[in-house]
């Protein structure tokens, strides 16, 4: 289980996220909606433990352990993984080396080759990571690394952005595989928190709970399809107004 309590996150001196509360049960998938710049990626990177994102209040508990002050790499080794929206190019480091590092000895070259085949990246194993990759290739590369990493909590930052229609089906399948959607609900161990700006990913991946983030706050929580419908009808502006009304208690 992941439990976020009254979390506030700052970058430099500026507080970006305020009073975030969220609980994701084992095997559950939740989605986070929100307009650009609302703080969605900040939440994911803060959960992952990137040092730039400083936790100023609140706590994060993962699998019963308080990880609020735990460094990035230790969180990763504890079972938190993240797919990046715009990962950096790492010149000289080959895709195959990266996937092997993610496997941490749980597989060999054959395992790497199988993962490459599954993600349609067989010709990319000798390529430098993210160097000259298209939008779809980056997403598949991120999914390949996460499938190798086998996290217990997968943080997915806009997995459908920049992906064409053909690739989005594959990305959806890979997310479902990562989140063990093929297993009966009680048997699923991997939790997921997916950021989506457009909600397209919900056509391919089922989620239990949805949230809307506006101006660094969670403005509402509920059935993800209902939330998406509301956003489609009234835009994110309706969420902002709703949040404002709640703050003013009107």
């Amino acid at each position: 289980m992941l439990k976020i309590k009254q979390l506030a996150v700052a970058v430099g001196d500026k507080e970006i996220l305020h009073d975030i509360n969220m609980t994701i049960g084992t095997g559950e998938t939740h989605v986070l909606f929100g307009p650009n710049g609302s703080g969605k990626t900040t939440l994911l990177t803060a959960l992952m433990g990137f040092p730039k994102y400083r936790i100023v209040r609140g706590s994060i508990t993962f699998q019963g352990k308080d990880i609020t002050g735990l460094p990035l790499d230790e969180r990763a080794r504890l079972g938190i993984g993240m797919s990046f929206q715009r990962p950096p190019v790492v010149r000289g480091v080959k895709m195959s080396d990266m996937v092997a590092a993610c496997l941490k000895g749980r597989g060999d070259a054959e395992t790497v080759a199988k993962l490459a085949k599954r993600t349609d990246l067989e010709d990319f194993l000798d390529r430098e990571i993210n160097y000259g990759f298209s939008g779809g290739e980056i997403k598949r590369s991120e999914m390949m690394q996460l499938l190798a990493q086998k996290p217990k909590l997968a943080l997915l930052d806009e997995p459908e952005s920049g992906v064409d229609l053909e690739n989005i089906v594959l990305i959806g399948e890979l997310i479902n595989e990562l989140l063990e959607k093929h297993c009966p609900i009680p048997d699923r161990k991997c939790m997921g928190l997916i950021i989506t700006h457009t909600g397209h990913i919900l056509d391919y991946v089922n989620a239990r709970t949805g949230y809307v983030m506006c101006d660094g706050r969670i403005s509402c929580q509920g059935d993800p399809h209902e939330i998406l419908q509301t956003i489609k009808e009234g835009g994110y502006g309706s969420c902002v107004n709703c949040l404002a009304r709640r703050h003013l208690n009107v």
Partner: peptide, 29 residues
């Protein structure tokens, strides 16, 4: 070495030393 690259590798579970060594090895390759 770009800190962003080191942290990217750390997010895959490598320690800072391992991540730096991987980047240097890649640089020399």
């Amino acid at each position: 070495i770009a800190e962003e690259e080191v942290e990217y590798l750390m997010a895959r579970g490598l320690t800072r030393t391992e991540a730096t060594a991987t980047i240097v090895r890649g640089f020399l390759r």
